Computed example of a mutant assay.
Amino acid sequence: MHFDLAHAIVVGIAVSVVIFVMHETGIVKRDREKKFSWKMVLAITVVVFILNLIWPYGP
Rank of each mutant, 00 (worst) to 15 (best):
R30V: 07
T45F: 12
K35W: 05
V18A: 13
H2T: 04
G12V: 04
H2P: 11
L42Y: 09
H23G: 10
A8P: 00
A43F: 07
V21L: 10
A8Y: 04
L42E: 09
V10C: 04
K34F: 09
F49C: 08
D4K: 09
G58A: 06
I27A: 13
V10N: 02
M22P: 09
D31K: 11
H2C: 03
S16T: 04
L5H: 05
G26V: 03
Y57R: 01
R32C: 12
I19P: 00
E24V: 13
S16P: 00
K29T: 15
W55I: 00
K39A: 14
H7E: 01
E24C: 13
W38K: 14
I19Q: 04
I27E: 06
M1T: 06
P59M: 07
G58T: 01
M40A: 15
W55T: 00
P56H: 01
V11E: 07
H2R: 06
M1I: 04
V17C: 02
V28N: 15
R32M: 13
S16H: 06
L53C: 03
D31A: 14
I44K: 01
G58C: 05
V10H: 01
H23E: 12
A8D: 01
V46E: 10
H23I: 10
A6V: 08
D31Q: 11
W38G: 15
H2M: 05
H23A: 14
H7Q: 00
A6C: 09
K35D: 09
L5P: 05
V28I: 13
F49K: 08
K35L: 14
H2A: 05
I44Q: 02
G26K: 13
V41N: 12
F49Q: 01
V28Q: 15
E24S: 13
R32T: 10
V41Q: 10
I13Q: 02
I13Y: 04
I27V: 15
K29R: 15
H7I: 00
I44G: 04
W55Y: 08
F3E: 02
T25N: 13
W55N: 00
I19D: 08
V46S: 15
V28R: 15
D31P: 11
T45C: 14
G12N: 02
